[in-house]
Amino acid sequence: MLELHLGGHLAFYAPQKQSRFNIPIDQPTDLGLILQQLGVPLAEVAIVAVNGELVDLASTRVKPGDRVELYPPMGGG
């Protein structure tokens, strides 16, 4: 299982505008692919943290048990 959190307006694109998902995976999987399946445009993803470490979305594969946090560009206000 993968624990995934869509922060900020990323949840706008997800099914039922949900922000938290437990995604069943049993082997290392391309994170971009998971996001595409959820309907999240990759261009809106600005920050990706896997288990608290910043990573690059393009090259990231996630594995069962990972905790993934994603955020869009955070403007001011």
């Binding site: 922060g7 307006h9 505008k17 809106e44 920050i47 910043l54 946090e69 869009p72």
Partner: peptide
């Protein structure tokens, strides 16, 4: 619109998690 939807849903406080994640 995704950005105003987010402001409507969470106000400005969505920034805390995002800025923490960005360091």
């Amino acid at each position: 619109h995704p950005q105003s939807w987010d402001l409507h849903e969470k106000g400005t406080n969505a920034l805390v998690g995002g800025l923490q994640a960005a360091g």
